[in-house]
Amino acid sequence: MIEFEYAAPTQLDDAIKQLTAAGDGARVLAGGTDIIVQLREGLRSADLVIDVKKIPELTQLEFCGEQGLHLGASVSCRRIYDDENIAAAYPGLADAVRIIGGWQIQSRASVGGNLCNSSPAADAIPPLITYSAQAHIAGPTGRHVVPVEEFCTGPGRNVLQQGELLVALTLPPQPSGSGSAYQRFIPRNEMDIAVAGAAVWVQLDKRGERIERARIALSAVAPTPVFAAEASEWLSGQPASEEVFAKAGELAKRVATPIDDMRGTAEYRTHLVGVLTKRTLATACERART
């Protein structure tokens, strides 16, 4: 690995100052499970690595049913699923953070880091999109908020400008009758990057029979994780049935523009979108009823 300097600021302002000063050569370290590999393999370079785990705001994890979830950018996957209340309220997010790497990875990897790494195949981003999560960004010019849906701009690229830092993610409170799920397809049962992934959030009517609102987001089938708008909108008012789930899966395929690579062909990935959307819809509806 090429030599770099290390800083572990304890104040957000200091972090932003250091980030700004270092310019192009600064890299943020949260869980490190992506950035350390990238630095080692020469995929990214750094003059300065800024460890943000000592900044209180970034490690804050607060859940209150009425206000929703405040998820500091460097909170580990492990802390999310270890909290039974959070896992129960946001099961789609819990699904994702339980399968990011093995346990050793989950002890360190953060959802914020997963977002900032902006991989098309990121597991945690599709659930965030389905919850309409907001990304809270701080930078030299102040703070602003971006919907997670708009955060990623390409493979490994996102809206963060030089000197800016993701501080937290906020997820809205979950109304009763809502449910969510995330599934990815991988050839093994663990320790793989998604060939394709689908997250679903649904709101059912009081009888649990009809879908009032739904949001579907996909991973690994486009340059960024994508929101499947047409499929999501079409589901409003539809009965929660296998036929409907399958149709939604067909509609979701329309936003898939995958590539062929060693993890799968474009055709296979597109096909998997249909299968995974159908399956996650079934799981999310089941969860919405309980």
């Binding site: 050839p187 093994r188 049962n189 663990e190 320790m191 793989d192 990057i193 060693m262 993890r263």
Partner: peptide, 11 residues
């Protein structure tokens, strides 16, 4: 070992 997929015990 991520993409050359030898079996894990969960498989």
């Amino acid at each position: 070992f991520l993409d050359y997929r030898i079996p894990t015990c969960y498989d």
